[in-house]
C-alpha cells in the first residue's frame, strides 16, 4: 500500500492504495466518483477521460501512485453547484448522447480541446473537432450531434 494525495475537483483527498491501482479505480472505487466510466480493457474507448494537471488523459491507463500530488478534474467537477457546464448543456441541446455511457469521457476530452483552442486563439473547424475526438468511441450517436455540441460549446465557453 502506498499513500496517495491528490486534489480532485478542488478537494484534497488522501488514500492508501495498492501500487497497481489505476486512476480510474482510484476515482471510482476509493473516491466513489462513478461518473468516470470504464468501457474497455484496451485503452481505446475514452469513456474514462479525466483532466490531470490540465491535460485530458485516459484514467484507465495511469497509475494512481504515479499521480501523487496531481490536480484531477472529473465529470463531477464540471458542475460543482449543479449548474451544467456549457459543454454539458450543449450535449443536452444537440442530443449529443443516447445511452450516455461515452458522454463523461466525450465531455472531458471536448472541454480540453476547446480550452486549448481558445488559449491558442483558434476557432475549431468541424474536421479539427472530429480529429480531436478520435480517442473517444460512441456506439450510439454516430458522432454527428456530438460534433455539433462541441462546436456550440466552443462559442459559449
Amino acid at each position: 500500500m502506498t499513500e496517495v494525495t491528490m486534489t480532485v475537483n478542488g478537494r484534497k483527498v488522501r488514500r492508501d492504495v495498492p501500487d497497481e491501482t489505476l486512476l480510474s479505480e482510484f476515482l471510482r472505487e476509493s473516491l466513489r466518483l462513478t461518473g468516470t466510466h470504464v468501457g474497455c480493457d484496451t485503452t481505446q474507448c475514452g469513456a474514462c477521460v479525466v483532466h490531470v494537471n490540465g491535460a485530458a488523459v485516459k484514467s484507465c491507463s495511469a497509475l494512481a501512485v504515479a499521480l501523487d500530488g496531481a490536480e484531477v478534474t472529473t465529470i463531477e467537477g464540471l458542475a460543482p453547484n449543479g449548474e451544467l457546464h456549457p459543454m454539458q448543456k450543449a450535449f443536452n441541446d444537440n442530443h449529443g448522447l443516447q445511452c450516455g455511457f461515452c458522454t463523461p469521457g466525450m465531455i472531458m476530452t471536448s472541454v480540453d480541446m476547446v480550452e486549448k483552442a481558445k488559449a491558442a486563439g483558434k476557432t475549431l473547424t468541424e474536421a479539427e473537432i472530429r480529429h480531436g475526438l478520435e480517442g473517444n468511441i460512441c456506439r450510439c450517436t454516430g458522432y454527428h450531434n456530438i460534433v455539433k455540441a462541441v462546436a456550440q460549446a466552443a462559442q459559449e465557453m
Binding site: V49, A55, A56, V57, E134, N136
Partner: peptide, 9 residues
Amino acid sequence: IGDPLVRNM
C-alpha cells in the same frame, strides 16, 4: 499518433 489522450501521456 493515436489520439489526443494517448499523445498527452
